[in-house]
Amino acid sequence: MTETTTRTTTHAAARATTRRSRKAVALLFAAGLLALPGCTVVKPWDRDMLSRQDMAFDADPLETSRRNHVYFSKEATPPGGGAGGGGCGCN
């Protein structure tokens, strides 16, 4: 009886794990579906919106350099696309 109960509990746990795994796979699949647009090729003549100044990853270079300038001097984190360096290491 005890063995049966244990086995039942184990199976229940296994089913729960399987359900969780399926949920995880489903979530990953959903994420993959969401990422599918990334596979779409946007032709050059369809990039009018992408060429807007406010669509640039660095839309205002002077503002970006000023912000990097300030935040790097007041926080421990280096700016932008890479790790910081130079300077006195005061932060």
Partner: peptide
Amino acid sequence: GALGALTASAMALPGLAPAAL
């Protein structure tokens, strides 16, 4: 002074902002 310099260096770091598009 040192603070100003380090910020300058941060700003002056080349090639750390990859351009896209």
